[in-house]
Amino acid sequence: DVEPGKFYKGVVTRIEKYGAFINLNEQVRGLLRPRDMISLRLENLNVGDEIIVQAIDVRPEKREIDFKYIP
């Protein structure tokens, strides 16, 4: 289970104008929005990159997770 405030290693699987989709595993995916990136820009991410993200909002009923990147 993903818990708000905890850090997780994930893989960038898709990049859109509104953010990057990060997979923690095959069943768990969330969104990293540009506003939640500190010292990292969306255009510097590539599909396949491994990054450490912090879960900031977890909505299991909608199967949605918002992430934050903190270097």
Rank of each mutant, 00 (worst) to 15 (best):
Q54I: 13
L32I: 05
R41T: 15
D66M: 08
E61C: 07
R29N: 09
K6E: 09
E3M: 15
E26D: 14
I70D: 14
E50A: 14
Y69R: 02
Y69M: 05
N46S: 15
P34D: 07
N46H: 15
I56N: 06
R14V: 08
P34G: 09
N25I: 04
E64R: 08
G5F: 09
I38C: 11
R41G: 11
E64Q: 14
F21A: 03
P60M: 10
R14G: 09
P71V: 07
P4W: 08
K17S: 14
I51Y: 02
N46I: 12
G30L: 04
K17Q: 13
K17A: 14
G30W: 03
T13M: 09
T13D: 07
F67Y: 02
G48T: 03
Q54G: 04
I52R: 09
Q54V: 12
L40H: 06
I51L: 13
D66F: 13
L31W: 04
Q27F: 15
N23H: 14
Y8V: 04
S39C: 13
P71Q: 08
T13C: 07
R29S: 13
E50T: 15
I15R: 03
V28T: 13
P34V: 13
E43R: 10
L31C: 04
R33P: 02
K6W: 08
A55F: 04
D1H: 15
G10R: 00
L42C: 03
E16Y: 12
E43N: 11
I15E: 00
N23D: 12
D36Y: 08
V58K: 05
I22N: 00
V28D: 08
M37P: 02
I22T: 00
F21R: 04
V47E: 07
P34F: 08
E61A: 12
D1M: 15
V11P: 00
P71W: 06
E16K: 10
L31A: 02
Y69C: 04
E61R: 09
G30H: 02
Y8C: 02
I56G: 07
I15N: 00
F7P: 05
E3Y: 13
V53E: 00
E3I: 15
E64N: 07
G19E: 01
A55G: 02
D66I: 10
V47S: 03
I22L: 04
E61S: 13
G5Q: 06
V12R: 00
I70R: 07
I51P: 00
N23I: 06
V12D: 00
K62L: 14
E26K: 15
P60A: 13
L24W: 03
D66L: 11
D49S: 05
R59M: 04
G48E: 03
V28I: 14
P71E: 09
E64D: 06
K68V: 09
Y8G: 00
I65P: 02
Y8E: 00
A55S: 04
Y18R: 05
P4M: 13
D57G: 15
D49T: 06
V28C: 08
L32W: 04
G10A: 06
Q27I: 13
R41S: 14
